[in-house]
């Protein structure tokens, strides 16, 4: 047995042992789930102090056709007995959808415009066109979104975040 193979074998055994002995692994200590709803305009362009704004509600997914907006909710729950730290949630925006905006708390949100190879905050995502002109990337150009929770999720704790995306 070569040295490398031996190391790999040892490591595999180690991980396998962890799997059977660690209660955390046996019952998936952190749950992540996703739900979706469709945005429906219930009152179009009502005048408000902020100008003309539509009033929305979110309904169970129904008849989604191009141009309509879906709200995705990502739910977290720590089922374990220990705080979960360094939580990072990653999501690839579905190819047929356009990212619009997100809403979350206690999260550092970064985006990728290069299919997940690199992530950064919006002001540092710069696109240079053929003429050498630079501009900040638009939300519609984000391919991936990453939420990094800046505090631990306590044992038994829950959190959720949402984002809106439009069907192309």
């Amino acid at each position: 047995m070569s040295n490398i193979l031996q190391k790999a074998f040892t490591r595999a055994v180690y991980v396998a042992l962890l799997c059977v002995s660690g209660p955390a692994f046996a019952e998936q200590p952190v749950d992540v789930s996703m739900t979706s709803e469709k945005q429906v305009v219930i009152k179009a362009s009502a005048e408000s102090p902020n100008g003309y704004v539509d009033t929305y509600k979110y309904v169970p997914m129904e008849k989604v056709s191009p141009g309509e907006i879906v709200r995705y909710t990502i739910n977290l729950k720590n089922n374990g007995n220990e705080p979960a730290a360094d939580i990072v949630i990653s999501n690839k925006v579905p190819a047929d959808m356009i990212f619009i905006e997100q809403e979350s708390k206690n999260m550092v949100v970064t985006y990728s415009i290069d299919k997940g190879e690199s992530f950064n905050t919006p002001e540092k995502l710069i696109i240079t066109n053929d003429q050498g002109q630079k501009r900040q990337a638009r939300a519609s150009e984000y391919t991936h979104v990453k939420w990094s929770r800046n505090v631990s999720l306590a044992a038994g704790g829950k959190d959720s975040l949402t984002y809106l995306a439009k069907l192309k």
Binding site: A24, P29, V30, V32, M34, S36, V64, Y72, I74, L76, G80, E82, P83, A84, A85, D86, I87, V88, I89, S90, N91, K92, P94, D96, M97, L153, L167
Partner: peptide, 12 residues
């Protein structure tokens, strides 16, 4: 159109 999120974290 399918979508799923992935979480990474650490304990202790």
């Amino acid at each position: 159109v399918s979508n799923s999120a992935t979480i990474s974290y650490s304990v202790g």
